[in-house]
Design a protein around this nucleic acid. Structure first.
Lengths: 338, 338
DNA sequence: TTGAAAGCGATACCAA
DNA sequence: TTGGTATCGCTTTCAA
């Protein structure tokens, strides 16, 4: 029975009283249940509109067991790729009536409270895109049957994943550098054990090998600006200097370019530098970085597709998608003469 | 009565059955209600632990009318200040058992569905930090009595706000440039009507005036990289060229520097460039930008304080806090000889 | 200190 | 097509 609650938001009950129908009917009408006659539905919609009614997601979630919330675990914004991914995700999710809740956004270890939130808020699914943090969160998801999609990360055992075709992207880079007449290619690796890093490196190495080139050196860059910056000194003090440097992601390439210039090295005259990701800064004048653009929009849509399907049909077999990247030729690397 | 639900997460009822006490007791024990005896509480905690119990936030929210969710409205990541703010916010909020839900993260107009989400999910509060979007969201919050704090934005009528002391920061910049012997200062403005932009500009102008200088020119930069880049040509084709350029935020300063260099202008030999924000890229080698660092961590904490208090005590009077910024002297501008 | 029971706001089953 | 009612998981009076 409806106790009149002053100053509270209207509920289905408020509407049902107003319309002189049951709450079931109101609920159905509001969700466009075909069983409700058109005129009644319109009448109810009008009342809802007039009252400024908005359904309470919590109450609904309690019975439907669907919250419409998707958790998101990511690395720090110090790699601009992550904010770009998040921004795209929030926007694309909205179009599917899904909301993103960032659980973690830093290099710190995943805190227990972040994990708890995933369960407490009964999130419908989770998207993970940080190499370091994935295992822990993945375990929790699996144990609690929360659909999970990894982005830019190969699932450990089984699970869903969407990723740029890193190997193919690496190959593009390798082939591009070889075609540009480079003979001494060095590679700066990212986060240790990250699949993105090793796949891109493998692709580039293979393409180089195909052109009869061996990789001159492989050094660590830790997927940070500082790592790339420091790698510059390391590579430039090698007995044989590289004529091309492939940083497996853009953020390291920026550090590399700044590090090299600090040493007086000219880019691309003395050495070509290429990256991977095509974040915003790659097209900035200071870098104008040749790189491989990840198809972020498509990746996000694909990830949401996978998630959506598994939210609807739990237990669906895991699936992995590789989406092709696009080589962006800019001025940080010498190209083959046209 | 507890119907045995296979494969479902344990609830207070599961625990109550296991412990042989009522659900009320379980609920109280789990929340450390002092009325429950220590031994009983421990026993219940142990069972909860063993069962892997986690409270359902939705169910709890339904009765307590508190969700622990704070909405966040922000501009696009193309200004790196926003991701930095978000990252800090997520982390600091976690420490207070609050979760952040991004409602909007782009330059697009605020969509109706984003607004709806604020109400549907019964968010406890909202933090807004985009100049363009604030009015709309602020109205909704006010109408629905959702506590709101604006960050880096002066509230229109009344409302809470936390902001860097933009005027003082602008003054630091103006004084610094004057002390460095600059005589012809130009200012690149950001988003039209944004308080941050006009306050910083006013501060710098005033400090310049105090040093007997008039601002040479004021041009639009739209708070984007491209805007800064284009402003470079505008300023450099002025009959009298500036010897210092203050971009009211870093993102425009990056565009400015790249634009100037494109024109063959040397920084800081030909012209000094300074910014405001101290985003990550400001310390990158390519820019090494002199700027004012916003105290992001403190700002976020302060904003959460304000929100927290108003969630607890609705109707608390609005409050505004200005936090001091810190001048970061780097090499993009000539300094006064020591 | 503990328990029984009434909600919170919505959905969904079962009848009519 | 519609209504009555149980239910989702938890908190919170009100009694004991």
């Amino acid at each position: 029975m409806a106790r009149e609650q002053a100053g509270r938001r209207p509920t289905v009950e408020t509407i049902s009283a107003e319309a002189g129908v049951s709450v079931s009917t109101v609920s159905r009408a509001l969700r466009n249940d075909p069983r409700i006659s058109a005129e009644r539905r319109e009448a109810i919609a009008a009342i809802a509109q007039r009252l400024g009614y908005t359904p309470h997601a919590n109450a609904r979630a309690l019975v439907t067991r669907r919250t419409g919330i998707v958790g998101f675990v990511t690395g720090s914004r110090s790699n601009p790729f992550y904010p770009q991914l998040l921004e795209t995700l929030v926007e694309r999710a909205r179009l599917r009536a899904l909301r993103i809740m960032p659980l973690h956004m830093s290099r710190d270890p995943l805190s227990e409270s972040s994990i708890q939130a995933l369960l407490q808020y009964q999130m419908d699914g989770c998207i993970i895109t940080s190499a370091e943090l994935s295992s822990r969160a993945a375990d929790i998801c699996q144990a609690n049957e929360v659909p999970l999609v990894m982005v830019n990360r190969v699932p450990r055992l089984h699970g869903c994943a969407v990723s740029c075709n890193n190997f193919a992207g690496g190959e593009m880079i390798g082939a591009f550098l070889a075609a540009g007449g480079h003979r001494r290619i060095a590679i700066v690796l990212g986060t240790p054990n990250a699949s993105t890093s090793s796949e891109r490196e493998a692709g580039a190495s293979q393409a180089a090998a195909r052109a009869g080139l061996e990789i001159l050196a492989r050094v660590a860059g830790h997927s940070t600006y500082a790592g790339g910056f420091e790698a510059a000194s390391v590579l430039w003090s090698l007995p044989e200097r590289p004529d091309a440097i492939f940083c497996v992601n853009d953020i390291m390439a920026f550090g590399m370019m700044d590090g090299l210039r600090r040493l007086g090295v000219r880019i691309p005259e003395d050495v070509s530098v290429v990256g991977f990701d095509d974040v915003d800064q790659a097209s900035w004048g200071a870098y104008d970085l040749t790189t491989v653009a990840q198809p972020v929009g498509d990746m996000v849509d694909r990830a949401l597709d996978m998630l959506d399907m598994r939210i609807r049909r739990p237990g669906l077999a895991p699936e992995i998608a590789y989406l092709g990247g696009l080589l962006k030729v800019r001025s940080s690397a010498r190209s083959a003469p046209a």
